[in-house]
């Protein structure tokens, strides 16, 4: 559905994208993670045909995003990260305009969404808050019947209730088999919504796969209270950062080392055992905390 292969984009002397790879399959919700300035928005703008890639191949819905922009956009919806609207137009006017330009929307669906997101369509957009401007773009995108949705940090201005409504909408879209590429730095959101994840850093993809696959690559943190303190835990290959105090053991364990580690604990007599699978945050920090 969406493919990027070695895409490079330079702005003057700065390299925004340095050979990025990305594959999004049809019908999947794909999280596109990275901190500010990693190149998420640049990637989305290339997929929209707003920017032309300097090198590499990009394809979306089987077309080249630069050459076939208009054809692609009939089947695509986009929510920008920083929504800027025409100050003198009312929210309703903007929604009608964007719907028409997209090629028509279902007015009943739009009315439902306006209700759901608690938007006053009669207000001029200059009086809207950041969250309300974002809602306009969200309603316009969700009301359209698209195959692909590109969402750039779509919840950054929303309150928790609206965020929950947005998540419900994404679940609906996934149930209908739509493809969604969601850029975010809110990891809980990606964890809750997404089938697969790509993490980018300095314009390059550093990790990509399902959450389960990614977790497999990382360590699980284990803490246990034991009858007696076993010796030699540190020596088990794949066990790191062992701390022992007052009969309590904490360690970071690679997935492959888990059987050996757990049996060593069992020998020592387990009183209490807790294991935390790595969160997306751990994955993320693992890539970014290391210099």
């Amino acid at each position: 559905m969406i493919t990027l292969q070695g895409v490079v984009k330079r702005f003057g002397s700065t390299t925004a994208l340095d050979g990025i790879d990305l594959t999004v399959e049809a019908g999947e919700v794909h999280a596109f993670l990275g901190p500010n300035g990693a190149g998420k928005t640049t990637t989305l703008r290339i997929l929209l045909g707003l920017l032309r890639a300097d090198a590499g191949r990009a394809s979306i819905l089987g077309h080249d995003p630069w050459h076939d922009a208009v054809a692609i956009h009939r089947r695509l919806s986009y929510v920008p990260g920083d929504v800027s609207l025409w100050p003198g137009l009312s929210g309703g006017e903007v929604l009608e305009l964007l719907g028409r330009l997209h090629g028509g929307v279902n007015p009943a669906r739009r009315a439902e969404l306006i209700e759901l997101f608690d938007l006053d369509p009669r207000k001029r957009t200059r009086t809207y808050s950041k969250g309300n401007r974002q809602k306009v773009a969200l309603v316009a995108a969700l009301a359209s019947d698209s195959d692909v949705y590109l969402l750039d940090e779509p919840t950054s201005g929303l309150d928790p209730i609206m965020e929950a409504n947005f998540r419900a909408c994404v679940h609906d879209l996934r149930a209908q088999g739509r493809t969604i590429l969601l850029s975010s730095h809110i990891l809980s959101e990606a964890e809750a919504l997404c089938d697969r994840v790509s993490i980018i850093k300095d314009g390059r993809t550093v990790e990509s796969g399902t959450l389960a696959e990614l977790r497999h690559l990382t360590r699980t943190s284990v803490s246990a209270r034991l009858h007696r303190v076993p010796a030699g835990l540190q020596e088990i290959p794949g066990v790191h950062d062992v701390t022992i105090s007052d009969g309590e053991v904490q360690a970071q364990v690679e997935n492959g080392a888990m059987p050996a580690f757990v049996s060593a604990l069992a020998e020592a007599g387990v009183v209490e055992l807790q294991s935390h699978p790595p969160t997306l945050e751990d994955l993320f920090l693992q890539h970014y905390a290391r210099t």
Binding site: L89, S90, E93, L95, E96, L97, R100, P121, K123, R124
Partner: peptide, 10 residues
Amino acid sequence: PGPAVGRIHG
């Protein structure tokens, strides 16, 4: 306040 449903078509 402006119109709830706009008339700007294109």
